[in-house]
Amino acid sequence: MRIPRIYHPTPLTPGAEIILSEDAANHVARVLRMQAGGMLTLFDGTNMTFTAQITHADKKQVNVQLQSVQEDDRESPLHLHLGQVMSRGEKMEFTIQKAVELGVNIITPLLSERCGVKLDVERQEKKVQQWRKIAIAACEQCGRNRLPEIRNVMVLENWCAEPDTGLRLNLHPRAKHSINTLPLPVNRLRLLIGPEGGLSKEEINLTSHYDFTDILLGPRVLRTETTALTAITALQVRFGDLG
């Protein structure tokens, strides 16, 4: 039986007895129905994994005793920052979950002219908290031991203007370059994925102003969530650790 992987939000030390976070305890006790004596694997975002045994479990609290520790690096050599114009409902959640599984390091939700999601500041903050929980769950499932950063919502131009030493890419259906024509090596990328209606002409000009390279994925028009995952996969195959 596979040992469940659980994220813990504070640094872990071998030999310590700790109380799991509320979300983790709910998952262990209520969803998995685990009891005292059961084994877990814990990680705290430092690339270390800890074997832990449950010493107490009820519906309100789960205690575990930390045992052995080992380094377990699952990170890609490609540092990838995804700027994703927000999509509606489950599409954005799906994109974040799969981007985490594919090794993205940073995800910034973006607002653009044709963004179909309209949220006030309070709802934006709630969404970001929800997306961070989705990222944690994706790490628990896929084996990553470093949490990707889910940033607060930004306006497209502000994100484009941020300094970055890596290659900047923008997907465009009439681009002249494909991912396979990009020069090697590349170890740092900033990837922009636009909204379902695409970027406006002014926004495309904006990306050019900030030195983004337009790239083409193929002859077919892809939905925004398909575009993000296809591009990330292709970039990880060429520059990262897939394939």
Rank of each mutant, 00 (worst) to 15 (best):
P4I: 04
P4F: 10
R5N: 15
P11G: 08
A16F: 00
E22L: 11
R33H: 02
M34E: 04
T46R: 00
N47F: 12
I54K: 11
A57F: 08
A57G: 06
K59R: 04
N63A: 08
V64D: 08
S68H: 06
Q70G: 13
H79Y: 04
H79G: 11
H81E: 05
L82G: 01
L82R: 02
G83T: 08
M86D: 05
K91T: 02
E93R: 08
E93V: 02
I96H: 03
G103Y: 03
L111N: 12
R114Y: 11
L119T: 07
D120G: 04
D120A: 02
E125G: 14
E125C: 06
V128N: 02
Q129A: 15
Q129C: 07
Q129W: 09
W131S: 03
I134S: 08
A135K: 01
C142M: 05
L147D: 08
E149R: 15
I150V: 04
R151C: 07
C160H: 01
D164Q: 13
T165S: 12
T165Y: 13
G166R: 06
R168W: 01
L169G: 09
L171D: 09
L171M: 11
A175L: 01
H177M: 13
P183I: 04
L184T: 15
P185S: 01
R190H: 14
I193N: 03
P195I: 02
E196M: 13
S200K: 02
L206Q: 04
L206A: 06
Y210C: 07
L216G: 04
L216A: 01
L217E: 14
R220M: 03
A228S: 13
A228K: 10
L229Q: 07
L229S: 02
T230Q: 08
T233W: 12
R238I: 13
L242H: 07
